[in-house]
């Protein structure tokens, strides 16, 4: 209950302050956000777009943890948790892709242009898309759980690489990518001021709480479904 109230308060505050605080080229007061060259007002999407990508990482790693737990204990309730987390991770991955594409349209001029960041999230979507086709292809419950657990572990190992490493070592347009050595590309220097950082990390916490809530709801539903299924 405390967590739900905290989520409500935090996310409301993030939306109000993230959208509402004025931007100024030379911030003086505590409430003024700095103007980031090349981003302008669009910089505010960091409070909403990055947490969705963050949640897909959290969800995929949660999926891996429960997949390992399943393989050790062979308890189907762990498989339920693992697949629920993967489902939520996939949804937030799609949201990160869509919101990123809208932003790219106005920052880079087109919805999709195979930037390293876009390529890596696309590969990630393919990897987890395959996870769900694997699950729907196997009829027997135990076999499905074992196969998809093994797959979830291997898939999650690739997640840090695609989200954190690959886009940073390749030259790209996405903020945080390795800069163009010639300095010719429109690479954006992204440094957050302390007040932006507070909103940003509050947003990460709020979205993580949101994930936890959606995850437990989904798991509870799936557990009752499994229970009903067993009783016929």
């Amino acid at each position: 209950m405390v967590l739900k109230i905290l989520l409500g308060v935090l996310l409301t505050a993030v939306i109000i302050f993230g959208l509402g605080l004025p931007m100024s080229p030379h911030p003086q007061a505590w409430y003024e956000l700095p103007v980031i060259p090349g981003l302008g007002e669009k910089a505010r999407i960091i409070f909403f777009h990055v947490p969705t990508a963050w949640l897909s990482v959290v969800a995929f790693l949660t999926s891996m943890v429960y997949a390992i737990a399943y393989l050790r204990k062979r308890d189907l309730s762990y498989d339920i948790r693992s697949s629920a987390a993967a489902g939520l991770g996939f949804m937030f991955c799609i949201l990160a892709t869509l919101t990123g594409a809208v932003w790219a349209k106005f920052n880079w001029g087109s919805y999709w242009n195979w930037d390293p960041r876009e390529t890596s999230i696309f590969v990630l979507l393919l990897i987890y898309g395959a996870y769900f086709s694997l699950r729907s292809a196997v009829e027997t419950e135990e076999k499905r759980a074992a196969l998809s657990s093994a797959y979830a572990i291997i898939a999650a190992v690739t997640v840090p690489f695609f989200i954190f490493i690959m886009p940073r070592i390749m030259t790209g347009l996405h903020p945080g990518a390795k800069g163009d050595p010639e300095g010719a590309g429109p690479v954006v220097e992204f440094k957050m001021s302390p007040n932006m950082r507070i909103i940003f990390f509050s947003s990460l916490v709020a979205f993580t709480l949101l994930f936890y809530w959606m995850f437990t709801l989904r798991v509870r539903t799936a557990q009752v479904e499994a229970h009903n299924h067993q009783r016929g």
């Binding site: 999407i45 909403f48 919101t99 809208v102």
Partner: peptide
Amino acid sequence: IVMIIVLAI
């Protein structure tokens, strides 16, 4: 644009 993104989420 930010509003569109928040709405999408």
